[in-house]
Write a protein that binds this DNA or RNA. Sequence first.
RNA 1: GCGAGAUUAGUAUAGUGGUAGUACGCUUGCUUCCCAAGCAAGAGACACGAGUUCAAUUCUCGUAUCUCGCACCA
Length: 459
Amino acid sequence: MSDKKVSMEDIVSLCKRRGFVYPGSEIYGGEAGLYDFGPYGVELLNNIKKSWWRANVQLKENYVGLDSAMFKNPKVWEASGHVGGFSDPLAECKKCNTRIRVDKELEKVGVTADEKMSEAELNKLFDENRDKIKCSNCGAHEFSEVKAFNLLVKSNLGDFTGAGDRPVYLPGEACQGIYLNFKNIVDTTRMKVPFGVAQIGKAFRNEISPRNFLFRTREFEQADTQFFVPPHQNKENYQRIKQERWDWYVNELGIEEAKLHWKKHDNLVFYTKEAWDIEYDFPSYGFDEVEGIHDRTDYDLSQHTKFSGTDLNYTDPHAGEKYIPWILETSMGMGRIFLAVMSDAYTVEDKGDDSRTVLKLKPELAPVKAAIFPLLKNKPELVAKAREVYQMLANEMQCEFDDNGNIGKRYRRQDEIGTPSCIVIDFDTLEDDTVTVRDRDTTEQKRIKISELSNLLNN
RNA sequence: GCGAGAUUAGUAUAGUGGUAGUACGCUUGCUUCCCAAGCAAGAGACACGAGUUCAAUUCUCGUAUCUCGCACCA
């Protein structure tokens, strides 16, 4: 038995074929950078979220969860720097296609250009000064129009006239909701610094070029934790958090450790002290980021104090000392994790002329925990008994009933969606209430009492 | 967003200026006492729009989506 090399196309094909992931708005010709999770996809996704929540909220005494509104006061995005810094006005050289930053080039020739200016205003300034600006690459003066690439997605909440006087944004990152509620959580719960807040939320970005399946999408989900610590107590916590996150991938998601590595950021934004990514070795793409772990100092709460006018200082209950807490962040892309989990589980066993595709998911993550089959579909007593067992187990876990075709086909179908156990009702079942349980990975079966099924499967 | 390439059923693919096969999958029936078995039947596709043409899935142009480079990437 040897495993074939897996490409991303194999994963994409399986995702579509088996109902894990569909291209967004497909019947209308699709929409770039959007994907829908199908029946099995949503189960897997929810199981990943459940595992993450358990590790980051349930099992941690000093972490609490949150779910903040996606729409926020527009000033939030000014404070976060997204409105200003998330936008680059660009023009393109017609000769060599090199892009220039229009605001920077204008400033070089002594013209003040505000990056908050509208496209029309920037174009007017640009047109007036085109002669003075040349392409940094080939020296030509021929440029396309200015386009502002702000990654924030605008919306029109409460803007009934469409005039856009007060632009609102979909979240460019999910974590801002945590900063906004820091004071609420301190005031209404018994959390004391150091403590953490966890949230799973959607984020939207006008990616110029969404690509690589679920890896870079325009709408995506993030799972973030923000850990608030007293100033300068970042180092020791940072190490602990790094370790905890690594362990989650290995122990809880069951990802092969050799497929993971750390990558340190060399070019840090000014407020970040340290930043490491966990990268996964994706088929076809190679290593790329699935989660970032950032030491963000007091930047976020300071900014929100400044922009909101609300004092976000924390008063230490023992020492009475006041300070803006520092933040250690973990931020994971849910779609990327989904893709990593799928890639890691995807296995093709080559057995000569026969081959078997198996999703070797950790049982906790599997979309379907158990599939129940009657050995033969034309024996009503077997079908009835199988339905009975199915009803019993469906109370406790995600199950599937299948009497289609022959038993081998049903096994293979379940293998491909990663179902850990297949339960078969045969003639012996009718005599002594035992069934066979077939293991996904070994394909071996053992016979057990129906009354012991639940126990076995739950372990 | 630029450049290049691609797009035929759910998936993977063949093929043609006179509207299309194959494999697997799917549905139904029969059969079958455990690993994609067998028999029979069935549903299902030329991405979208325009042009050329007597006739376009095929040629041309545009659009969309995907892939690969570039660029971008809190």
